[in-house]
Design a protein around this nucleic acid. Structure first.
Lengths: 189, 189
DNA sequence: CCCAGGCCATACACTTGTGTATGGTCCCTT
DNA sequence: AAGGGACCATACACAAGTGTATGGCCTGGG
């Protein structure tokens, strides 16, 4: 009878559904990103969802597309814009997991996507792409920092692993740890 | 009328439910470990489940207890039994993710537990415990290998992170990578 | 002013999952 | 040879989630 309340909330678009979907993904994995709870979370009914998306799977694919882009472009472009040295950039990257609540969400999303990728071919493809991009970027930075090519690739892997480890290996004194890592990873040969 | 089929399958115990639960956990996260699917998977009805466990949450807690033990004792004791040098043990640890299907399951379980730990206090506690145990063990091995105490802790973190990275960072030429990591991580100071 | 289309509520039919209550087998003991 | 307990099937009541069908509101362009 009164579909949208008198004080009209601004209408939703697909992006907001996707945002809420990432929240759910971060908390419960891909199995937890369900239409009905999302609708309740957004304060609407599923009628809205099925207008923006064909079905649940369409949402999943949209999430993958977005993750695949945001996971690289956002971070790297922002990093490249500021004119710093390679080592400064590596520093800032290492300090990244520490950031805030925001990056804790990001870490959870990373976990969830990788778990998802265990049995979903599309998710696996996205993860492969993201990993390749990041690894080659890190290797490039390390080369610019003075590390020879082959070792740069190896150390890029360590760097990447340390980045993730910082995010979800629970340990005390992260501060001290980060300094040690910095020394180990960025040592000139 | 004929509760258990004539050809009696051996009766289940709680352990088998937990095993199946870990399979589900590895595939879909904690949200996917549901009673009814597990029952179908095991070829019984939920009647069995609710005899062995009070409810779904009881199963979750039992899983945590088991993970917390198996994640450390099993691996380390087996490693300690064989009389090797510290560096040999570190080598074998680094080669661990490569192993088989079996360890792919283990990696997925690790992912799922850590994702779970984002919002479950008990899971978080288990992860903290496991991480502490592993990190101190790695640090001990590295000390035995000749690395001074403080750097041993830092390098143990890198070692741990690399171990996980190997398991779930998708990259080509894992073989070459592992050799590079070995050189970087086990270099004498 | 009106009406087409963007956006959403409502209702309905299923499906899947949870938990409980109860009873039926089988085996092991006494 | 009972009888008790381990183990599970069955049935029931309910809750939650998925899609579909349909119609209503509300805004902008002619």
């Amino acid at each position: 009878m009164k579909p949208r309340t008198v004080q009209n909330a601004p209408p939703l678009d697909a992006a907001q559904w996707i945002e809420a979907a990432f929240d759910a993904l971060a908390e419960g994995g891909i199995e937890a990103v369900r239409v009905d709870p999302l609708a309740k979370q957004l304060g609407v009914t599923r009628g809205s969802f099925y207008w923006h998306f064909k079905d649940r799977d369409a949402l999943h694919q949209a999430m993958l597309r977005q993750w695949r882009e945001r996971a690289n472009y956002m971070i790297f472009n922002r990093l490249e814009r500021s004119a710093e040295s390679a080592s400064q950039r590596l520093d800032r990257l290492l300090a990244l997991p520490h950031a805030t609540e925001r990056s804790s969400r990001g870490a959870a999303i990373e976990l969830a996507v990788r778990l998802w990728a265990q049995r979903d071919r599309n998710a696996a493809k996205a993860v492969r792409h993201v990993d390749r991009t990041r690894l080659t970027y890190f290797a490039k930075l390390l080369q610019q920092h003075g590390v020879p090519v082959v070792e740069a690739r190896h150390r890029a892997f360590l760097f990447y692993a340390a980045l993730m480890g910082e995010a979800w290996i629970t340990t005390d004194n992260r501060e001290a740890m980060r300094h040690g890592l910095r020394a180990l990873l960025l040592a000139k040969p």
